[in-house]
């Protein structure tokens, strides 16, 4: 077998072949210099690796990897349709925030494209806006967040409830990606892991902005990042999570619909990659970090780390925002 002739032929047949394997172009450089080091026996294995990279991994994704990516895709749809719907409702998103919400909506669309691409034929049919119940009523349409998409309804002056929901959704997202990352950490899925990490940090950026907006709303300073956070941080939060943010935003009916977003998952303690403490956790890798320095208060330590959430807990939160038709499609189940 003439290995180099094969590559040349491949490139003729598919001019994008070399682009597809761009990350490994150095391999070819090396081959050019020292190709003789590859023995004939090694060629089939080497080729298998190339083809896998060039022509897709969807058929070889393991079930746990597919499950992580599918849940991520479902969460992206939850967010995308929420922001996209809000942008279409006149008078809901204050003018100072239209650009920001558009940016966030667009990022979620990008994430949907990226995840659908990686899942390939394993991707579920696109979820529709009607598959979600943004009232948080599990399909009743009458949950505690029902005013979030109604301009200036009770609790939603200047979109306050909308931004509260955005905060809860993006925090759910960042905790879910964090929980899923170890499952993507296999030799065959390092590129997918990195893509997930690159989505994860964008969700955290979104979340920081939602929190900044909520501080501004309380200070009547929309359009400014300079408003002060107000303890206990449920209404005017910091851009990071302080303990459990007093259970998160309060709904007009007085309930705390996002409290599970900040609480522990299951199990709550154990090794960092298989346990899901609440956001008020102060111990990392077996060390209580408040013992390292007297200025390291529990609040400061909790702020310095975000915590992962397990898939089951993520689903139980997201199911509150799933309609009957969504459930029929298996959404978040």
């Amino acid at each position: 077998m003439d290995f180099f002739q094969l590559l040349t032929d491949l490139e003729k047949a598919d001019p994008e072949f070399l682009d597809r394997i761009n990350p490994r172009r150095r391999v070819f450089k090396y081959l050019g210099n020292a190709g003789q080091k590859i023995t004939a026996a090694a060629v089939p294995a080497v080729l298998a690796s190339f083809f896998n990279r060039a022509y897709g991994q969807s058929t070889t994704l393991t079930d746990p990897v597919k499950a992580v990516l599918t849940l991520a895709l479902q969460l992206e749809y939850l967010e995308y349709h929420f922001y996209n719907t809000a942008l279409g409702i006149s008078g809901l998103v204050p003018s100072q925030e239209t650009t920001a919400i558009t940016t966030i909506r667009n990022d979620e669309a990008g994430h949907i494209n990226a995840l659908r691409g990686v899942l390939g034929s394993a991707a579920p049919a696109p979820y529709l806006v009607t598959d979600f119940d943004y009232s948080g009523g599990s399909g009743s349409g009458n949950g505690p967040m029902r005013n979030a998409l109604i301009p200036n309804a009770a609790g939603n002056t200047n979109g306050a409830l909308f931004f509260a929901a955005g905060q809860a959704f993006s925090d759910t997202g960042q905790r879910a990606y964090k929980g899923g990352a170890p499952i993507l950490n296999t030799t065959a899925t390092k590129d997918i892991l990195e893509a997930a990490l690159n989505i994860h940090s964008v969700e955290a950026r979104h979340n920081s902005h939602f929190r900044t907006v909520r501080r501004a709303l309380v200070a009547n300073a929309l359009g400014s990042a300079g408003a002060q956070a107000v303890s206990p941080y449920d209404a005017a939060p910091k851009s990071w999570v302080n303990l459990i943010d007093n259970g998160g935003p309060t709904a007009p009916d007085g309930s705390k619909p996002a409290s599970k977003v900040y609480g522990p998952g299951s199990p709550a303690s154990g090794a960092p990659d298989t346990s899901y403490p609440g956001e008020d956790n102060v111990s990392q890798a077996g060390t209580n970090l408040t013992t390292l320095n007297s200025t390291y208060t529990a609040a400061a330590v909790s702020e310095a780390f975000d915590e992962p959430l397990d898939a089951a807990t993520v689903k139980s939160i997201a199911l509150l925002f799933t309609s009957t038709s969504g459930k029929a499609k298996g959404l978040f189940q």
């Binding site: 960042q174 990606y177 964090k178 990352a181 170890p182 950490n185 990490l197 994860h200 940090s201 964008v202 969700e203 955290a204 950026r205 979104h206 979340n207 920081s208 902005h209 900044t212 990042a225 300079g226 851009s239 990071w240 090794a271 960092p272 990659d273 298989t274 990392q284 890798a285 702020e303 310095a304 780390f305 975000d306 915590e307 992962p308």
Partner: peptide, 24 residues
């Protein structure tokens, strides 16, 4: 995976910082 999880707990806080500084 334990180390990966620890890195994940830190990086999102860095992203929160970055976003706020950029907004400022």
């Amino acid at each position: 995976n334990a180390n990966l999880a620890l890195a994940g707990k830190i990086v999102s806080v860095e992203a929160r910082h970055a976003a706020l500084i950029r907004d400022l």
